[in-house]
């Protein structure tokens, strides 16, 4: 379970998160939507322990992530996988070596077993032919899928997705959406997804939260969001130019 308790985050003097509280249950797929710069990715980085809040707490399975000792953070991170926006592959390693990296570094399996796990993940994400290619030689979408394969390789309990469908074609977006659903169904994985793509959000979410100017203005099921009366949420999900969200 992931819990935000009155979380504040400032960059210089600008408040990015202003008292965010939310609770994500085990096995839930929780989608965070909102405009650019409203603190969606910052929220993910709080869960990952990559940034600490200036106020409030981020609690993962009953353990406070913020201010935790390195050993505690490492233990919490071992339960997590993250798909970064660009894939974040190490650029001097092949796709296969990138996927194997966490297993090799921590010597979690013998080399032949690592090879088998990598092959399985490559197959799962339709990347078998890219095993020996360098990140610079594959498309943005393939890099993203390789990043996802790497985050899955340690069988995490929680997966954080930062814009999983950005830069992907509609077919590949559906592949990723189905994968997220399958992770939940088969392995009871908790997923926190940051996205702008409302089609994806409706397809995968158990609940959707909308962040606006550092605050959660609505949180509910996809149907509740779809039928919202909140004018800000309504404008955002319909992509309308008319409404309270200023177009800058």
């Amino acid at each position: 379970m992931i819990e935000f308790v009155d979380v504040y985050k400032y960059y210089n003097t600008r408040a990015v998160l202003k008292g965010v509280s939310m609770r994500i249950e085990r096995g839930e797929t929780f989608v965070i939507i909102g405009q650019s710069g409203t603190g969606k990715t910052v929220s993910l980085r709080h869960i990952a322990g990559l940034v600490d809040p200036d106020g409030g707490d981020v609690i993962i399975d009953g353990v406070k992530m913020n201010g935790a000792k390195r050993r505690v953070k490492t233990a919490l991170r071992e339960k997590m996988g993250v798909l970064f926006q660009s894939g974040a592959l190490i650029n001097w390693m092949t796709v296969g070596d990138n996927i194997a990296l966490p297993l090799v570094e921590h010597r979690l399996h013998p080399p032949d077993e690592i090879e088998k796990i990598v092959a399985e993940k490559l197959h799962m994400l339709q990347l078998t032919d890219a095993r020996d290619k360098m990140p610079a030689d594959i498309s943005g979408g393939m890099r993203k899928r390789a990043g996802l394969a790497r985050s899955l390789v340690r069988n995490p309990e929680i997966i954080l997705y930062d814009e999983p469908s950005s830069g992907l074609d509609p077919v590949m977006t559906s592949v990723i959406d189905q994968l997220i659903r399958r992770m939940q169904r088969e392995y009871n994985i908790t997923s926190v997804v940051v996205t702008h793509d409302m089609g994806s959000a409706y397809a995968i979410a158990d609940r959707i939260a909308m962040l606006y100017q550092g605050e959660i203005i609505q949180c509910g099921t996809p149907d509740e969001i779809r039928n919202t009366e909140n004018p800000i949420v309504r404008q955002f999900i319909t992509g309308s130019l008319a409404g309270p969200i200023p177009v800058v």
């Binding site: 980085r45 990952a48 990559l50 490492t74 991170r77 071992e78 997590m80 996988g81 993250v82 970064f84 926006q85 660009s86 974040a88 592959l89 190490i90 650029n91 990296l101 966490p102 570094e105 921590h106 990043g147 790497r150 985050s151 340690r154």
Partner: peptide, 21 residues
């Protein structure tokens, strides 16, 4: 470049120390 493209964050998330790596 690795830092700004989140590769260093990715290492941390894999519990790989960027100092060691």
């Amino acid at each position: 470049t690795m830092t700004v493209s989140e590769e260093v964050d990715a290492l941390q998330m894999m519990s790989i120390s960027p100092v060691k790596f």
